[in-house]
Amino acid sequence: MRPIPEDTLRFVRLCVPLTGFAPFDLHATGMAQLYLDTARQQVGRYRLDTFLTELTEACTPLLDPSELSETDREIARAITYLWYTGAWPKLAVDAHADLRREMANTEFVVAPSTYVEGLVWRTFQSHPVGAKPPGFGTWGREPAELPPLTEIVQECGLAEQTGGSRPEEESTRGERSVPGGTRIEPHMLPGPRVARDVPPSALPTARAPRSERNTA
């Protein structure tokens, strides 16, 4: 019998403001321990502890990334990317250097099952490509509705205090904004995959759509 160690439980709690998923969903991946081990290995045990302390302070309870140092911000992104995709990403070169990492700065999938447990698929109510199939003909169903931002905040237990980066609630449902009100800038979207061997974490971001470029 192996109870979940206390540091893993803490890691899961701290990953809630990073990922926007509640502890239940994070545990439900079955990957919490492996992710903590991976982060320790990639960043260094001591350095990760420092990061987690800094992270705690930057969350009120939502995370304000500007409260983090540049390197900590990149670590926060990497750990979030890990939960969302099952892969450890390629880091910004400066962060990689600052961490004095001894491994190659390349993206890798931690294990076949981490890919399968990626959270990104859950954000649009789907399943990982090549696993957890939903059954014959289900692709013909209308996609399930996405939860509004307030509901996600509530579900994560992040609503008690008002933080600096608390998202504005808007009811506008336009194609250029998220239900929660964030305007979608092109740099928030991926750009063309210039070559197939460039890992997802190293791809360029999108440029403004042609329609807007031409009028600009």
Binding site: T29, G30, F136
Partner: peptide, 26 residues
């Protein structure tokens, strides 16, 4: 059939979470 597969996902999520009773979880 799709409901059976949904049960698979729900069940796996439950089994991977600690028991709500702290004594059992421990």
């Amino acid at each position: 059939v799709p409901i059976m597969l949904e049960l698979r996902d729900l069940a796996q999520q439950l089994y991977r979470n600690p028991h709500p009773n702290p004594a059992h979880a421990k």
